[in-house]
Amino acid sequence: MDQKLYEKRHLKNKLFHLLLAGCILFSITALALLLYDIFSKGLGWLDWQFLTSMPSRSPEKAGILSALVGSVWVIGLTSVFSLILGVGTAVYLEEYTDPKKLINRIIQLNISNLAGVPAIVYGLLGLAFFVRFLGFDKSILSGALTLTLLILPVITVASQEAIRSVPRSLREASYSLGTTKLQTITGVVLPYAMPGILTGSILAISRAMGEAAPLIMVGAAGYIAFLPKGPMDWFTVLPVQIFNWTSRPQEEFQYIAAAGIIVLMAVLLSANAVAILLRNKYQNRMD
Protein backbone atom coordinates (compact mmCIF):
# COMPACT_ATOMS: atom_id res chain seq x y z
CA MET A 1 0.00 0.00 0.00
CA ASP A 2 0.96 3.62 0.16
CA GLN A 3 4.09 3.31 2.24
CA LYS A 4 4.63 7.05 2.37
CA LEU A 5 1.21 7.82 3.80
CA TYR A 6 1.68 5.09 6.38
CA GLU A 7 4.99 6.55 7.48
CA LYS A 8 3.57 10.03 7.57
CA ARG A 9 0.69 8.96 9.80
CA HIS A 10 3.00 7.23 12.22
CA LEU A 11 5.39 10.16 12.28
CA LYS A 12 2.44 12.39 13.17
CA ASN A 13 1.54 10.01 15.97
CA LYS A 14 5.09 10.12 17.35
CA LEU A 15 5.24 13.91 17.22
CA PHE A 16 1.89 14.11 19.00
CA HIS A 17 3.16 11.72 21.66
CA LEU A 18 6.16 13.98 22.24
CA LEU A 19 3.93 17.06 22.42
CA LEU A 20 1.74 15.43 25.05
CA ALA A 21 4.74 14.29 27.05
CA GLY A 22 5.79 17.95 26.94
CA CYS A 23 2.46 18.94 28.55
CA ILE A 24 3.10 16.55 31.42
CA LEU A 25 6.70 17.70 31.68
CA PHE A 26 5.44 21.27 32.08
CA SER A 27 3.55 20.36 35.26
CA ILE A 28 6.43 18.35 36.66
CA THR A 29 8.87 21.20 35.96
CA ALA A 30 6.50 23.75 37.48
CA LEU A 31 6.18 21.70 40.67
CA ALA A 32 9.95 21.19 40.87
CA LEU A 33 10.68 24.89 40.36
CA LEU A 34 8.04 25.89 42.90
CA LEU A 35 9.48 23.58 45.54
CA TYR A 36 13.02 24.74 44.70
CA ASP A 37 11.95 28.39 44.98
CA ILE A 38 10.39 27.88 48.39
CA PHE A 39 13.00 25.62 49.92
CA SER A 40 15.99 27.60 48.66
CA LYS A 41 14.53 30.77 50.16
CA GLY A 42 12.90 29.46 53.30
CA LEU A 43 14.93 26.58 54.63
CA GLY A 44 17.68 28.81 56.05
CA TRP A 45 15.16 30.75 58.12
CA LEU A 46 13.27 27.78 59.43
CA ASP A 47 14.41 27.04 62.95
CA TRP A 48 13.06 26.52 66.46
CA GLN A 49 13.10 30.24 67.14
CA PHE A 50 10.89 30.83 64.04
CA LEU A 51 8.38 28.22 65.18
CA THR A 52 8.13 29.52 68.73
CA SER A 53 8.15 33.32 68.24
CA MET A 54 5.46 35.89 67.68
CA PRO A 55 5.45 38.03 64.54
CA SER A 56 7.78 41.01 64.75
CA ARG A 57 8.80 44.10 62.87
CA SER A 58 12.36 42.85 62.55
CA PRO A 59 12.73 39.76 60.36
CA GLU A 60 15.33 38.09 62.60
CA LYS A 61 12.90 37.94 65.52
CA ALA A 62 9.74 37.19 63.53
CA GLY A 63 8.03 33.90 64.17
CA ILE A 64 4.94 31.99 63.22
CA LEU A 65 3.59 30.76 66.54
CA SER A 66 0.44 32.89 66.70
CA ALA A 67 -0.49 31.95 63.11
CA LEU A 68 0.15 28.27 63.78
CA VAL A 69 -2.02 28.29 66.90
CA GLY A 70 -4.67 30.33 65.04
CA SER A 71 -4.73 27.81 62.20
CA VAL A 72 -5.11 24.92 64.64
CA TRP A 73 -8.05 26.69 66.33
CA VAL A 74 -9.82 27.63 63.11
CA ILE A 75 -9.31 24.30 61.39
CA GLY A 76 -10.24 22.36 64.51
CA LEU A 77 -13.60 24.11 64.76
CA THR A 78 -14.12 24.00 60.98
CA SER A 79 -13.56 20.24 60.98
CA VAL A 80 -16.09 19.63 63.75
CA PHE A 81 -18.76 21.90 62.22
CA SER A 82 -18.32 20.77 58.63
CA LEU A 83 -18.19 17.05 59.40
CA ILE A 84 -21.37 17.17 61.47
CA LEU A 85 -23.24 19.28 58.93
CA GLY A 86 -21.81 17.60 55.82
CA VAL A 87 -22.27 14.00 56.89
CA GLY A 88 -25.67 14.86 58.36
CA THR A 89 -26.81 16.41 55.08
CA ALA A 90 -25.49 13.44 53.13
CA VAL A 91 -27.29 10.95 55.39
CA TYR A 92 -30.51 12.91 55.07
CA LEU A 93 -30.29 13.10 51.28
CA GLU A 94 -29.27 9.49 50.76
CA GLU A 95 -31.17 7.67 53.51
CA TYR A 96 -34.22 9.73 54.35
CA THR A 97 -35.38 11.30 51.09
CA ASP A 98 -36.19 9.95 47.66
CA PRO A 99 -33.69 11.26 45.09
CA LYS A 100 -36.57 12.03 42.74
CA LYS A 101 -38.41 14.18 45.26
CA LEU A 102 -38.43 17.94 44.82
CA ILE A 103 -36.76 18.74 48.15
CA ASN A 104 -33.86 16.44 47.34
CA ARG A 105 -33.42 17.97 43.90
CA ILE A 106 -33.52 21.52 45.26
CA ILE A 107 -30.87 20.79 47.88
CA GLN A 108 -28.74 18.95 45.34
CA LEU A 109 -28.91 21.84 42.87
CA ASN A 110 -28.03 24.21 45.67
CA ILE A 111 -25.00 22.22 46.68
CA SER A 112 -23.60 22.09 43.16
CA ASN A 113 -24.16 25.83 42.69
CA LEU A 114 -22.49 26.61 46.01
CA ALA A 115 -19.46 24.55 45.02
CA GLY A 116 -18.83 27.02 42.20
CA VAL A 117 -19.06 30.20 44.27
CA PRO A 118 -15.61 31.82 44.65
CA ALA A 119 -14.06 31.59 48.12
CA ILE A 120 -13.92 35.36 48.47
CA VAL A 121 -17.72 35.62 48.18
CA TYR A 122 -17.99 33.32 51.21
CA GLY A 123 -15.76 35.89 52.87
CA LEU A 124 -18.40 38.56 52.18
CA LEU A 125 -21.03 36.25 53.66
CA GLY A 126 -18.88 35.80 56.75
CA LEU A 127 -18.28 39.54 57.07
CA ALA A 128 -21.91 40.57 56.69
CA PHE A 129 -23.55 37.66 58.54
CA PHE A 130 -21.21 36.23 61.18
CA VAL A 131 -19.05 39.27 61.94
CA ARG A 132 -21.68 42.03 61.77
CA PHE A 133 -25.20 40.57 61.92
CA LEU A 134 -24.63 37.87 64.53
CA GLY A 135 -22.01 40.04 66.23
CA PHE A 136 -19.27 37.40 66.45
CA ASP A 137 -16.72 40.11 65.55
CA LYS A 138 -13.42 39.16 63.86
CA SER A 139 -13.25 36.02 65.95
CA ILE A 140 -12.01 32.49 65.40
CA LEU A 141 -15.65 31.44 65.46
CA SER A 142 -16.53 33.75 62.54
CA GLY A 143 -13.58 32.41 60.56
CA ALA A 144 -14.40 28.78 61.28
CA LEU A 145 -18.09 29.19 60.38
CA THR A 146 -17.15 30.91 57.12
CA LEU A 147 -14.76 28.13 56.14
CA THR A 148 -17.36 25.55 57.17
CA LEU A 149 -19.85 26.91 54.65
CA LEU A 150 -17.07 27.08 52.04
CA ILE A 151 -16.14 23.39 52.24
CA LEU A 152 -19.58 22.05 53.14
CA PRO A 153 -20.54 21.25 49.50
CA VAL A 154 -17.34 19.23 49.00
CA ILE A 155 -17.78 17.23 52.20
CA THR A 156 -21.46 16.62 51.49
CA VAL A 157 -20.84 15.34 47.97
CA ALA A 158 -17.94 13.11 49.09
CA SER A 159 -20.06 11.69 51.93
CA GLN A 160 -23.00 11.10 49.60
CA GLU A 161 -20.82 9.11 47.23
CA ALA A 162 -19.39 7.08 50.10
CA ILE A 163 -22.87 6.34 51.49
CA ARG A 164 -24.16 5.42 48.05
CA SER A 165 -21.39 2.85 47.69
CA VAL A 166 -22.66 0.86 50.70
CA PRO A 167 -24.21 -2.33 49.29
CA ARG A 168 -27.96 -2.69 49.71
CA SER A 169 -27.53 -6.21 50.99
CA LEU A 170 -25.73 -4.93 54.09
CA ARG A 171 -28.61 -2.62 54.96
CA GLU A 172 -31.12 -5.40 54.44
CA ALA A 173 -29.12 -7.82 56.57
CA SER A 174 -29.18 -5.23 59.33
CA TYR A 175 -32.94 -4.65 59.04
CA SER A 176 -33.57 -8.39 59.08
CA LEU A 177 -32.07 -8.43 62.57
CA GLY A 178 -34.86 -6.10 63.65
CA THR A 179 -32.86 -2.88 63.86
CA THR A 180 -34.35 0.54 63.34
CA LYS A 181 -33.33 2.84 60.53
CA LEU A 182 -31.14 4.90 62.84
CA GLN A 183 -29.41 1.82 64.19
CA THR A 184 -28.71 0.63 60.68
CA ILE A 185 -27.28 3.99 59.71
CA THR A 186 -25.01 4.35 62.73
CA GLY A 187 -24.12 0.67 62.98
CA VAL A 188 -23.74 -0.38 59.35
CA VAL A 189 -23.92 2.41 56.78
CA LEU A 190 -21.65 5.01 58.39
CA PRO A 191 -18.85 2.63 59.45
CA TYR A 192 -18.80 1.12 55.98
CA ALA A 193 -18.79 4.56 54.32
CA MET A 194 -16.24 6.00 56.74
CA PRO A 195 -13.06 5.58 54.63
CA GLY A 196 -14.66 7.44 51.73
CA ILE A 197 -16.10 10.14 53.99
CA LEU A 198 -12.77 10.68 55.72
CA THR A 199 -10.73 10.84 52.52
CA GLY A 200 -13.01 13.40 50.91
CA SER A 201 -13.37 15.40 54.12
CA ILE A 202 -9.69 15.63 54.89
CA LEU A 203 -8.98 16.83 51.36
CA ALA A 204 -11.65 19.50 51.82
CA ILE A 205 -10.29 20.49 55.24
CA SER A 206 -6.78 20.75 53.76
CA ARG A 207 -8.21 23.17 51.24
CA ALA A 208 -9.69 25.22 54.05
CA MET A 209 -6.33 25.25 55.78
CA GLY A 210 -4.74 26.92 52.75
CA GLU A 211 -7.46 29.54 52.25
CA ALA A 212 -6.55 33.13 52.91
CA ALA A 213 -9.06 35.24 50.96
CA PRO A 214 -12.27 34.51 52.90
CA LEU A 215 -10.49 34.95 56.23
CA ILE A 216 -9.04 38.30 55.18
CA MET A 217 -12.62 39.40 54.43
CA VAL A 218 -13.73 38.18 57.85
CA GLY A 219 -10.93 40.21 59.41
CA ALA A 220 -8.09 37.83 60.22
CA ALA A 221 -5.27 40.24 60.91
CA GLY A 222 -1.76 39.96 59.55
CA TYR A 223 -0.24 40.93 62.86
CA ILE A 224 -1.36 39.19 66.03
CA ALA A 225 1.18 39.20 68.83
CA PHE A 226 -0.72 37.05 71.31
CA LEU A 227 -2.04 33.51 71.38
CA PRO A 228 -5.81 33.10 71.06
CA LYS A 229 -7.33 31.53 74.18
CA GLY A 230 -10.88 30.92 73.05
CA PRO A 231 -13.15 30.89 70.01
CA MET A 232 -14.14 34.53 70.48
CA ASP A 233 -10.57 35.88 70.29
CA TRP A 234 -9.07 37.73 67.33
CA PHE A 235 -6.77 35.59 65.26
CA THR A 236 -4.54 35.11 62.27
CA VAL A 237 -3.81 31.93 60.32
CA LEU A 238 -0.80 30.62 58.41
CA PRO A 239 -1.89 31.70 54.89
CA VAL A 240 -2.87 35.21 56.04
CA GLN A 241 0.42 35.60 57.91
CA ILE A 242 2.31 34.43 54.79
CA PHE A 243 0.36 36.93 52.69
CA ASN A 244 1.26 39.68 55.13
CA TRP A 245 4.97 38.84 54.92
CA THR A 246 4.94 38.43 51.14
CA SER A 247 3.46 41.86 50.61
CA ARG A 248 6.12 43.67 52.65
CA PRO A 249 8.81 45.47 50.67
CA GLN A 250 11.88 44.34 52.65
CA GLU A 251 13.55 41.33 51.05
CA GLU A 252 14.09 39.49 54.34
CA PHE A 253 10.36 39.09 54.76
CA GLN A 254 10.24 37.11 51.50
CA TYR A 255 12.48 34.54 53.17
CA ILE A 256 10.32 34.54 56.26
CA ALA A 257 7.29 34.03 54.02
CA ALA A 258 9.01 31.08 52.34
CA ALA A 259 9.77 29.57 55.75
CA GLY A 260 6.10 30.05 56.64
CA ILE A 261 5.08 28.29 53.43
CA ILE A 262 7.26 25.31 54.35
CA VAL A 263 5.44 25.10 57.70
CA LEU A 264 2.05 25.37 55.96
CA MET A 265 2.93 22.66 53.44
CA ALA A 266 4.26 20.43 56.22
CA VAL A 267 0.96 20.80 58.10
CA LEU A 268 -1.01 20.05 54.91
CA LEU A 269 1.12 17.00 54.12
CA SER A 270 0.67 15.60 57.62
CA ALA A 271 -3.08 16.12 57.36
CA ASN A 272 -3.06 14.12 54.13
CA ALA A 273 -0.90 11.43 55.72
CA VAL A 274 -3.42 11.15 58.56
CA ALA A 275 -6.17 10.79 55.95
CA ILE A 276 -4.37 7.89 54.31
CA LEU A 277 -3.66 6.21 57.66
CA LEU A 278 -7.28 6.53 58.82
CA ARG A 279 -8.53 5.21 55.51
CA ASN A 280 -6.22 2.23 55.66
CA LYS A 281 -7.22 1.45 59.23
CA TYR A 282 -10.93 1.46 58.43
CA GLN A 283 -10.40 -0.47 55.24
CA ASN A 284 -8.53 -3.20 57.08
CA ARG A 285 -11.36 -3.52 59.56
CA MET A 286 -13.88 -3.84 56.75
CA ASP A 287 -12.04 -6.50 54.76
Partner: peptide, 24 residues
Amino acid sequence: VVKPILEILAGIPSIVYGFFALTF
Protein backbone atom coordinates in the same frame (compact mmCIF):
# COMPACT_ATOMS: atom_id res chain seq x y z
CA VAL B 1 3.67 8.63 38.98
CA VAL B 2 2.06 11.47 37.02
CA LYS B 3 -1.40 11.43 38.64
CA PRO B 4 -0.11 12.13 42.17
CA ILE B 5 2.06 14.97 40.84
CA LEU B 6 -1.02 16.61 39.33
CA GLU B 7 -2.90 16.00 42.60
CA ILE B 8 -0.12 17.69 44.57
CA LEU B 9 -0.22 20.68 42.21
CA ALA B 10 -3.99 20.86 42.68
CA GLY B 11 -3.62 20.77 46.47
CA ILE B 12 -1.09 23.59 46.80
CA PRO B 13 -2.76 26.67 48.35
CA SER B 14 -3.13 29.66 46.06
CA ILE B 15 -1.11 31.84 48.43
CA VAL B 16 1.89 29.62 47.62
CA TYR B 17 1.38 30.12 43.88
CA GLY B 18 1.18 33.85 44.56
CA PHE B 19 4.53 33.75 46.31
CA PHE B 20 5.97 31.71 43.43
CA ALA B 21 4.67 34.22 40.88
CA LEU B 22 6.12 37.22 42.69
CA THR B 23 9.49 35.77 43.70
CA PHE B 24 10.24 33.43 40.80
